[in-house]
């Protein structure tokens, strides 16, 4: 779980996005999104593929021009005319944005030069950054010789090199093995604990729960809910959920379950039934008994305690990985 730490001590937001709007043709990819991140805060942007996460952070990093809205980094406005605030941002794109034929150190040398680093300072930062992501032993090896997870870590190193006050990571663990994924999450957690503001987009609920102080749930270009994990979960109330599959007979199953004692609500989601009930584990025997008595073929049953995935499902009617 997330380590408690002081957040927002300076009073000045590292990143402030207000009323961002961006359309591609007739489709609104980002529709009036506002959020801010304080120093030392890890802000998670949670949403399924195509929800508008990458478009939002591309605008926040000055890579994409917004149709309207305002982006401020450490109080300075970022737009196509004023690019200096970019110095405070470390961007880690979803793509492996490195030269595969060059070594890790050469890649970092190049990106460091773009930020005005040179000489001993640059070489020192290269070593420190590679140490942080656990690649110091491979500093002179070509990126193309790295495993998928190592490439991702090198990708993060390039974003950290110039000691930004805001680190923006766009789904950094997609397609990564569990070991490397853990290493990446630990590194991000460490940086956040050291005071770096982090904007982290993901569609993995468990990553957002582990890393983020606050989470913005994004769907169809809008932030549909925002807050700490506790605040978001509390939106669902204190009820547990039992998710049930009865093959091909979910309508009949829902009717039976609605009549059970203690059941607050029954929701049909696709071929599944979700039952909102207090103390779900104690009620499981009566639920199973009711289904069996009515000759409903139970194929799966799961007790879901309140979490961000459940919040997302309740807010959007869709699963994160839809």
């Amino acid at each position: 779980m997330k380590i408690d730490k002081a957040v927002g001590t300076s009073g000045l937001a590292v990143l402030e996005c207000s009323h961002l709007v961006k359309s591609f043709g007739s489709r609104k990819a980002v529709n009036d999104i506002s959020f801010q991140i304080d120093p030392g805060e890890c802000y998670g942007m949670l949403g399924p593929n195509g929800a508008g996460k990458t478009t939002t952070i591309s605008i926040a990093c000055g890579l994409l021009q917004k149709d309207s809205g305002l982006v401020k980094v450490n109080g300075k406005e970022l737009n196509h005319k004023s690019i200096l605030p970019k110095r405070d941002i470390g961007y880690v794109p979803q793509d492996l944005a490195l030269y595969p034929e060059l070594s890790a150190s050469d890649n970092l040398r190049f990106f460091g030069r773009l930020y005005g680093l040179s000489g001993r300072e640059l070489e020192g930062r290269i070593n420190e950054t590679l140490e942080t992501v656990g690649l110091i032993d491979r500093r002179d090896d070509r990126i193309e010789s790295f495993s998928g997870g190592m490439k991702r870590r090198a990708n993060i190193a390039a974003g950290l090199l110039h000691k930004p006050s805001l680190l923006v990571l766009d789904e950094p663990t997609v397609g990564v093995d569990p070991q490397s994924r853990n290493a990446i999450l630990e590194a991000v957690q460490l940086l956040s604990n050291e005071g770096m503001a982090v904007l982290y987009t993901t569609h993995y609920m468990e990553e957002a729960e582990r890393l983020c102080d606050r989470v913005g749930i994004i769907d169809k270009g809008q932030i549909v809910a925002e807050g700490t994990r506790r605040e978001l979960v509390e939106q669902l109330g204190s009820l547990d959920r039992i998710r049930i599959s009865v093959s091909g007979m979910h309508r009949e199953g829902a009717e039976v379950l609605r009549k059970l004692d203690g059941v607050q609500e029954v929701i049909e989601i696709g071929d599944e039934i979700e039952v909102l009930i207090p103390q779900a584990r104690l009620k499981l025997p009566s639920v199973i008994e009711a289904l069996v008595e009515n000759h409903l073929p139970l194929t799966s049953l799961e007790v879901v305690e309140p979490n961000l995935e459940a919040v997302f499902l309740a807010l959007t009617g869709r699963e994160l990985r839809d």
Binding site: S58, C61, G62, L63, I83, L84, K86, R87, I89, Y91, P93, Q94, D95, L96, A97, L98, Y99, P100, F111, L114, Y115, A158
Partner: peptide, 16 residues
Amino acid sequence: TRRLGVFSRILAAPVR
């Protein structure tokens, strides 16, 4: 370079 997204990363730096 274009397909790898390196240009995006370059432009995320203070570069015109």
